[in-house]
């Protein structure tokens, strides 16, 4: 009884081991290369699910089927116009031929290292071959003017011939050519970050600063100029308003004087009698206006007044 139980147990265990050895599960994100004593046999397995192999002799080597990442080291590279920049790149690649991949690179570590060599080299070449603008810019679009500031610092972009997109594409293409027998394909390659190296950055900051100060000075002087203009306008207008008013007022007064003179002359200058009466009335008026208690009058006996006084007797 006990013996038979042990036998069954042994059989079950052996059977389990054999089953485990002769099957393997390929997950959705994986692909498998079967090797026999280290040598690949048959086609690679790309379908997910359970699969069979010869137990003990054959080994299943799993590889990722998905887009895999590659992240470049930030490299310091001079551009064609001798500007030193840091270029940080990334790529996405895929194991397209696991069999070849296994033969050439064995595992992902090997692939990453090969990709480092290829992509870093290509990046270096293409960056060095092009002006900085070409790696920064993509198209020759016309920038939107940003108002007042752009009148001073022009919102213009240099014409480019290649452009970022194309350089990325060239690098990708060229790298794919070099890696075509590795069983991998670089699906996308892009510049992640491009930046000036420290010393250049300081220079750029200085340039940006001086540019801004130039704008600030322009604004300030524009303000002063405009203020002076308004001030001048004010003075001019003030003088013109005042003198215009004076002119008009004097004209009006003059006209009135003339009119009055005409009226007087018309009345007083009719004939001798009227002239006589006028001068008489005027002298009487003068008496009234000029004589007061502080006036001392010396009347001679032959004066007109006295004559009247005398005649009163």
């Amino acid at each position: 009884m006990k013996k038979s139980l042990i036998t069954i147990l042994v059989i079950v265990v052996v059977a389990l081991i054999v089953i485990a050895q002769s099957t393997y599960i390929v997950r959705e994100s994986e692909q498998v290369v079967i090797t026999q004593f280290g040598k690949p046999v048959g086609e690679s397995v790309k379908d997910a699910g359970i699969h069979f192999k010869v137990p003990f002799i054959q080994t299943a080597n799993f590889f990722d089927k998905r887009y895999l990442e590659w992240d470049g080291d930030p490299n310091q590279i001079p551009t064609r116009d001798k500007k030193f920049i840091f270029v940080d790149t990334y790529a996405r690649w895929q194991i397209t031929d696991p069999l070849q991949f296994y033969k050439r690179l064995t595992n992902e570590r090997g692939a990453q290292s090969r990709l480092d060599d290829i992509l870093d080299g290509e990046t270096r070449d293409f960056i060095a071959k092009n002006y900085l603008e070409e790696t920064v810019r993509t198209s020759n679009r016309t920038p939107i003017s940003s108002g007042a500031i752009s009148e001073i610092v022009e919102d213009s972009l240099v014409q480019i011939n290649v452009g970022r997109d194309s350089i990325q594409e060239y690098i990708q293409k060229s790298a794919n050519l070099q890696s075509q027998d590795l069983g991998i394909e670089i699906l996308d390659f892009r510049f992640k970050r491009i930046n000036y190296v420290e010393e250049v950055r300081t220079q750029v900051y200085e340039r940006m600063k001086s540019e801004r100060f130039r704008i600030a000075d322009k604004f300030r002087s524009e303000g002063q100029g405009e203020a002076s203009r308004i001030n001048g306008e004010k003075e001019r207008e003030l003088k013109s308003i005042q003198s215009e008013a004076f002119k008009v007022a004097e004209q009006i007064k003059g006209k009135a004087d003339a009119e009055a003179a005409a009226i007087y002359a018309n009345a007083y200058n009719k004939n001798n009698a009227s002239r006589e009466l006028y001068s008489f009335l005027k002298s009487m008026e003068t008496f009234q206006k000029t004589f007061n208690s502080e006036t001392t009058v010396i009347l001679s006996t032959d004066s007109d007044l006295y004559k009247y006084l005398k005649s009163m007797d």
């Binding site: 009466l277 008489f280 009335l281 009487m284 008496f287 009234q288 004589f291 007061n292 208690s293 502080e294 006036t295 001392t296 009058v297 010396i298 009347l299 001679s300 006996t301 032959d302 007109d304 007044l305 006295y306 009247y308």
Partner: peptide, 24 residues
Amino acid sequence: KTRIYLETMQEVVPKLGDKIITDE
């Protein structure tokens, strides 16, 4: 004329200060 003259004098002469009368 005389009337106006005298009316004026009536008005003016009382207001005057010293009056000195001399012959010619």
